[in-house]
């Protein structure tokens, strides 16, 4: 009986863990307007109709998240018109989305029929699907895109279609490992469309311990990604980074030192949000007093002084 109870307890914990995981998804689309999104082009490519995000004008502006993401699970539902053509841009810079990032394809199969390297679920032109998904138009499908450092996994309707280890894809070398997520506007004929709903994201980098692991990677690109992500995350990374500075690991020390500087540099910009400065300043002050290392303490005091100039004006 006791064993059964323990089993049940373990099962409950696991189950709750999963449930929590699910809860950690954040909705990116409110069903009413495009709050949280940017449409940088002159001609709008998207509108919201009856709770649905609609890509309909031909070759209008792409739509990008306001935030940048490095590691994440992005999921949404989509519905394509008869010869609909759209896609999801990941880890891109909106000024040059296809040059800096890649596109996960969304395509009706009779546009004409395209191969596995260019069909729905493929990383368009870079990685083919190895399990072609249901491409029926006019019905809703669910897509999930997981970017876990250099590993990309794409699923459609609950089945994995595509997996990619960026290091093994020569043509993807030099692509960003952080950036914005975007939807491509209607890339088909006038009158065709793509619909989207239930758009949400699980940002893996919200967990400082996940980001921290990147700093210990033997791969300099992953370390660079960890540094960039730290700057997006700002204050939530400060404590972990300071702990890393005190470790007897010169790679972690150097990465943490640079990331702390970059965080302070970013929030010291004249147009940065003042509240974040106060939060980081408070942490630097507390940690500089607590640090066991005089070298770390002096460095934090120096950063604090730089930051304080921007707070006191």
């Amino acid at each position: 009986m006791k064993k059964v109870l323990i089993f049940f307890a373990l099962f409950s914990v696991t189950f709750m863990g999963l449930a929590q995981n699910n809860d950690r998804f954040t909705s990116l689309f409110n069903g009413r307007d495009l709050v949280g999104w940017n449409m940088p082009g002159k001609v709008p490519g998207f509108e919201v109709v009856d709770g649905i995000l609609v890509a309909s004008p031909r070759n209008g502006s792409e739509l990008f998240t306001e935030e940048q993401y490095g590691n994440f699970v992005f999921k949404f539902e989509y519905l394509l018109s008869e010869v609909g053509n759209s896609g999801v841009l990941i880890r891109c810079n909106p000024e040059n989305p296809w040059g800096t990032g890649v596109e996960v394809q969304l395509l009706a199969p009779w546009t004409p029929y395209r191969d596995d390297l260019h069909c729905t679920g493929s990383i368009y032109g870079y990685v083919a699907v190895n399990n072609r998904p249901d491409e029926t138009t006019g019905i809703w499908h669910e897509m999930e895109i997981k970017c876990d450092r250099k590993r990309i996994t794409i699923s459609v309707d609950g089945a994995v279609t595509t997996t990619a280890d960026i290091d093994t894809v020569k043509s993807m070398q030099g692509k960003n490992l952080t950036g914005f997520i975007g939807f491509q506007s209607n890339h088909s004929k006038e009158g065709e469309y793509a619909h989207f709903r239930n758009i949400s994201i699980l940002d893996l980098d919200n967990d400082p311990e996940y980001v921290k692991k990147g700093f210990y990677s033997e791969d300099p690109e992953i370390r660079k990604q960890a540094m960039e992500v730290s700057v997006f995350k700002g204050s939530s990374m400060v404590k972990v980074l300071i702990q890393m500075m005190d470790e007897d690991n010169t790679m972690a020390q150097a990465g943490a030192k640079q990331a702390l500087f970059d965080i302070v540099a970013g929030i010291s910009a004249p147009n940065a949000i003042g509240k974040e400065r106060v939060v980081v300043a408070k942490m630097l002050k507390e940690q500089s007093m607590d640090s066991t290392s005089e070298i770390t303490a002096e460095y934090l005091k120096w950063l604090l002084e730089m930051l304080n100039r921007t707070i006191t004006g």
Binding site: A265, S268, A269, M306, R309, T310, G313
Partner: peptide, 28 residues
């Protein structure tokens, strides 16, 4: 280091409206 464009006042010899940049002109 700050990853941003800076405006410079060449008479006062200081950056315009950027206290952090001005902080980096010297080191204690």
């Amino acid at each position: 280091r700050l990853k941003r464009k800076l405006q410079w006042d060449c008479v006062k010899e200081e950056f315009v409206n950027d206290p952090a940049a001005n902080f980096l002109l010297s080191r204690e």
